[in-house]
Simulated scan of single mutants.
Amino acid sequence: MKQFIYILSFLFSFGLFSQNQDLFEKANTFYNDNKYAEAIDNYQAILESGFHSADLYFNLANANYKLNNIAPSIYYYEKALQLSPNDADIRNNLAFAQNMTIDAIDVIPDAGLSKLIKTTTNKLSFDSWATLSVSLVFCFVILFLLYYFSYSTIRKRLTFVGSLTALTFVFITLAFAFHRYNLDKKDNPAIIFVQESKVKSTPNLKSEEAFRLHEGTKVQVVESYNDWQKIKLTDGKTGWVNSEDIKMLNDFK
């Protein structure tokens, strides 16, 4: 019975993949024919099936950009960048889309040691830092064994120094790995998805208006309360917006 279920599951997955491939090619044809709304409908149909890829988000963003849909184009470029962070085409197109936004928000730069640590941490992903740490542990073990079983004084000295160096870098890379993990955990970006959002000082419709944001602006969500989200801007300003005004970038639905 289990084998039969596995076969059905495989056939269903294969059928879904084939259907999505047809939709993707159909959407691309619409896009090339300048029928951007129809292309968007087909790309969205693929997303609704549960399939996600950088190419899909990129093409969906491009179609929205052609229709001057500011928030969706920025949103989907950002989604594509999450899956392919080193893609130059995605970054370039995202920059073009961001030029259509109204809000000009300053960025508070990091300085000194804080900037150095953050820059170094972001060089690698958490998985890459963790993999590097494991590799260094392996090097430490090998060098320590060579030191332990070596009879030559020079070889003992070299392997001892090498093992201590490897161990030191194990702790350093582990520190960067945990720092990257904490940064990723705190990173909760969203895009303003309404033409204009009134940012409140407290999570209440009757509270004082702190400032306003417009579609396409990227914010960080730092807290949630009922139907409200507390956001923070790159210039340090904070406030509360209605949950319906934003779309979370970390949600893959």
Rank of each mutant, 00 (worst) to 15 (best):
N204I: 05
E38K: 10
F4S: 12
E196Y: 05
L174Q: 10
Q3H: 06
Q44F: 06
F30N: 14
K198V: 12
S114T: 15
T202K: 11
D235Q: 08
A111T: 15
G162A: 07
I192F: 02
N86H: 08
Y148K: 13
Q229T: 04
N62P: 00
T217F: 00
N28R: 03
Y75M: 11
D110R: 06
K115S: 11
S53T: 14
V161Q: 08
Q3M: 07
Y148P: 00
K35F: 03
V134Q: 04
G50M: 09
T119S: 09
Q98S: 10
I172L: 12
I46Q: 05
D227E: 15
T238S: 06
S9M: 10
N68I: 07
E48V: 10
I192D: 06
I90H: 01
S18P: 00
D33S: 08
D235R: 06
S18I: 15
K66Y: 09
K200S: 10
L167T: 13
N182G: 03
V199N: 03
K247T: 15
D33R: 08
N86R: 09
S197F: 07
V194A: 04
L205E: 14
L174H: 02
N86T: 13
I246K: 00
E38S: 13
M100Y: 04
D110Q: 11
K247S: 08
Q195N: 15
H214S: 10
A39G: 04
D106S: 13
F126G: 01
I154S: 09
I90C: 01
N28Y: 06
I70A: 01
A39T: 06
A63H: 02
Y77W: 06
Q19L: 11
L249M: 11
D41Q: 11
N226V: 13
Y75S: 02
F30Y: 14
N250V: 09
E209M: 09
K206L: 07
V134I: 15
E244F: 09
S18T: 15
N59Q: 09
N226K: 14
E25V: 05
A27E: 03
L213H: 11
N62C: 03
N204G: 04
T234Y: 00
V134T: 13
T159H: 08
S125D: 05
S201F: 09
S9E: 12
K253D: 13
N64R: 07
P109S: 05
L132F: 04
F144P: 00
L143H: 07
K26A: 06
T121G: 01
N64C: 02
A63D: 02
D110I: 10
I74F: 01
S114F: 10
T217D: 04
D245Y: 04
D103M: 03
Y77A: 03
